[in-house]
Design a binder for these strands. Sequence first.
DNA 1: ACCTTGAATCGACAATCATCGAAACAGCAT
DNA 2: ATGCTGTTTCGATGATTGTCGATTCAAGGT
Lengths: 114, 114
Amino acid sequence: MKELPTIQANVCCGLATGVIDETDAARIAPMFKALGDPVRLRLAALIASQTEMCVCELTPQFELSGSTISHHLRILREAGLIDGERRGTWVYYWIKPDALHALSALLQPTPATA
Amino acid sequence: MKELPTIQANVCCGLATGVIDETDAARIAPMFKALGDPVRLRLAALIASQTEMCVCELTPQFELSGSTISHHLRILREAGLIDGERRGTWVYYWIKPDALHALSALLQPTPATA
DNA sequence: ACCTTGAATCGACAATCATCGAAACAGCAT
DNA sequence: ATGCTGTTTCGATGATTGTCGATTCAAGGT
């Protein structure tokens, strides 16, 4: 689990609020992309359903190899949606609520302009 | 512009609310996936910024071929995020607010369980 | 009828992706 | 030290994707 520069969850200018410029789009799209895979969506939901979750609990929920699960967790982490750390033998991941809120706000009708 | 069966925007069991089963994940993930490309994210935001928008207005906003824009619009439409119709020479697209709301709710902390 | 313009489809191609098994790494317990 | 188990990384592979240009389709105008 190397150190990874993660995407800033600094989401401005909502989708329903207004236009998104090229730079913002490049920053935000990877977050949606990360949620755009069924396995990762379920992983994120599982992780969000608890304050934190061990990889050893996550993996058996899928009929996929451990390396594939690890790969998906990395993508969710690089997207800034989750974070994690090793504690002894096991690795735990938790959701980053700010990122979720930011995306949620982005999709909301008219948060500020109303 | 052929007829296309679009995805049901019937989003239940939020990501922050609880677990998402395999079937729901398969139904919802394509929506996030559609927003997971910078060009499509900007397209969606542009379309959402007006009640409707002509392809002829959309295309010049990007340094991409018309066929590429058309391709991305199709993906957004198949994901159920936008809809459109031809009126004479031009084709207009509009956002489907319900789909956006559904995704937004999915990402919200605790919509109902709070 | 014909041509022009806006948009979608087709066919192709390089790039990215999801997945796996094997190998490497990190802790812990003998 | 040695081995065992959980997790990540590496390398490979088949599938999907974003993009283009060429073609086709739709609707108007002449």
